[in-house]
Computed example of a mutant assay.
Amino acid sequence: MFKAYKLAKVNERDAKIFLDNIVNRMPEVYEKIESGYYLRLYNEDKEAWNIYYDILINKKTSDYKDIAWEIVKDCKVN
């Protein structure tokens, strides 16, 4: 609603279009909420980030240096 208000201060037509788009999309959003779609996305994303951070925590700093050095060596121009 704040965005609609800000748009209306500049151009009421743009604010109306924005609000019309929201109204048209609400049934789809409501259906996704009811079906647990957004919760599933959140949990999948959370799991992926947890795996990512677990990998980082279990890596040794020396491993990063070796990996970085290999990347640098591959980038050298002859």
Results as ranks from 00 to 15, higher is better:
Asn11Leu: 00
Trp69His: 07
Ile57Cys: 08
Cys75Leu: 15
Thr61Arg: 13
Glu47Phe: 01
Asp54Ser: 09
Lys65Glu: 14
Leu41Ala: 12
Asp20Pro: 01
Ala15Asp: 00
Glu34Ile: 08
Ile71Tyr: 04
Pro27Ser: 08
Glu70Pro: 00
Pro27Lys: 03
Met26Asn: 02
Lys65Gly: 06
Phe18Trp: 15
Glu31Trp: 02
Tyr30Lys: 14
Glu34Lys: 11
Asp14Val: 00
Val23Ser: 04
Tyr30Phe: 08
Lys6His: 00
Val10Met: 14
Ala15Met: 00
Asp74Arg: 14
Phe18Leu: 10
Met26His: 01
Asp20Ala: 10
Lys32Phe: 06
Tyr42Asn: 11
Lys76Trp: 13
Ala48Gln: 09
Tyr52Met: 15
Lys76Arg: 13
Lys9Ser: 10
Asp20Tyr: 03
Tyr53Phe: 09
Ile17Lys: 09
Val10Trp: 05
Leu19Trp: 02
Glu12Ile: 13
Arg25Ser: 13
Asn58Ala: 07
Lys65Tyr: 12
Leu19Met: 15
Asp14Pro: 02
Tyr5Arg: 07
Leu7Trp: 02
Val29Ser: 06
Lys6Leu: 03
Ile51Asn: 08
Ile51Ala: 06
Asn24Met: 05
Asn24Tyr: 01
Tyr53Glu: 05
Ala4Arg: 02
Ser62Leu: 10
Asn43Arg: 12
Glu70Met: 05
Asn50Ala: 10
Glu47Arg: 15
Leu56Met: 12
Tyr52Asp: 13
Trp49Leu: 12
Leu7Pro: 01
Arg40Thr: 10
Ala15Lys: 02
Arg13Leu: 06
Ile33Arg: 09
